[in-house]
Amino acid sequence: MNQKKGPASNLALIEDVLAEYAGVPGSLITILQKAQDVYGYLPRDVMYHIANRVGVTPAEVVGVATFYSQFRLAPIGKYLIMSCQGTACHVNGSERVSAAVASYLGISHGQTTEDGLFTLEHVACLGCCSLAPVIMINGEAYGNLTPESAIAILKDIQAKEGASCAL
């Protein structure tokens, strides 16, 4: 686990979740999902705290957190770009779209831009196969993309956010 010791998290934020689920067998994934909703990712001290309350070892919690692709161990940007890696997207040229997005933002998948605006993630099939290739930004799907149209979408967001386009 490659996670720096960040500032202490406010553990009180998940007290309600723990009160409801800590004692229910088999609820670890649910707790982690709800914790991620609260913090945006799973900070190390939060995982230790969950382990303590659920009564399992921190290794078990981290083991579950690293097994599933949904869980993140680092903070994400304001806009989460999920680039679909499904078969239909692949056949329709998703690699070129993904590479164009990565090179435009200057990050590779799993990373966040320095200004904290964008995080790029590769995800398994989003199930919008007829619109392939697809990316999803903060839950909204964009289909039938080309490298150019994908970058245009990012530029729109940057313009809206007033960010410098010199990325």
């Binding site: 067998p25 088999g26 609820s27 670890l28 994934i29 649910t30 982690l32 999902q33 083991g63 579950v64 097994f67 599933y68 692709s69 949904q70 869980f71 995800v123 398994a124």
Partner: peptide
């Protein structure tokens, strides 16, 4: 809600996941 793992389509892996495990 699953948490993203293709192997969980396998029924015994799905059961493990339902129990909150890897």
């Amino acid at each position: 809600a699953g948490a993203g793992a293709f192997v969980c389509g396998e029924e015994t892996a799905l059961i493990e996941s339902l129990e909150g495990k890897r």
